[in-house]
Amino acid sequence: MVTNESHSHEKSIPPSRVLVGAEECIRIVFPTQSRPHKRTFLEWKARRLIPFYKIGRRIFFDPEEVRTALDRHFRITDK
């Protein structure tokens, strides 16, 4: 017999990463006034400037990792 009871020792572990598509990642990472075009964002992916995850045929991004990578690659310094 199969039941749908949950055991008290089993806990839901929240995912450590939030994976989203390219357009949603652009919306999360960039403010409205300075968003790059999707084509530019995918070019950065192709050049391996931003991390991504390929699951099957689909490509996903972790917005926190993307923001960190962009800060590292596109740093503006004072003169």
Score class of each variant (00 low, 15 high):
M1T: 13
M1N: 08
M1C: 08
M1D: 08
M1S: 13
V2G: 04
T3R: 04
T3S: 10
N4P: 01
N4R: 12
E5Y: 10
E5R: 12
S6I: 15
H7R: 13
H7L: 13
H7F: 12
H9S: 09
H9L: 14
H9W: 12
E10I: 15
E10H: 15
E10Q: 14
K11A: 06
S12F: 15
S12G: 00
S12M: 11
S12A: 07
S12I: 15
S12L: 14
S12T: 14
I13E: 10
P14F: 04
P15I: 07
S16I: 14
S16N: 10
R17D: 05
R17G: 00
R17W: 01
R17V: 11
V18Q: 12
V18N: 06
L19N: 03
L19T: 05
L19Q: 02
V20Y: 06
V20A: 02
G21V: 02
G21W: 00
E23H: 06
E24N: 03
C25G: 09
C25R: 12
I26D: 01
R27S: 08
R27M: 05
I28R: 15
I28K: 13
V29N: 08
F30V: 09
P31Q: 02
P31A: 01
P31V: 07
P31I: 09
T32P: 03
T32N: 06
Q33D: 14
Q33C: 03
S34W: 06
S34L: 08
S34G: 00
R35E: 08
P36S: 03
P36I: 06
H37C: 07
K38I: 15
T40C: 01
F41T: 09
F41C: 07
L42Q: 10
E43D: 10
E43S: 10
W44D: 04
W44Y: 14
K45R: 15
K45I: 01
K45L: 01
R47S: 01
R47K: 13
R47C: 00
R48G: 00
L49T: 05
L49N: 10
I50W: 05
P51H: 05
F52A: 11
Y53T: 12
Y53S: 06
Y53H: 09
I55K: 09
G56K: 05
G56M: 04
G56L: 04
R58T: 13
I59L: 07
I59Y: 06
I59N: 00
F60Y: 15
F60K: 12
F61P: 01
E64P: 00
R67N: 03
T68A: 13
T68C: 02
T68S: 08
A69C: 06
A69G: 04
D71F: 07
R72Q: 14
R72L: 10
R72I: 11
H73Q: 09
H73T: 04
H73N: 15
R75V: 13
I76K: 10
T77D: 02
D78F: 07
K79Q: 10
K79I: 14
K79P: 12
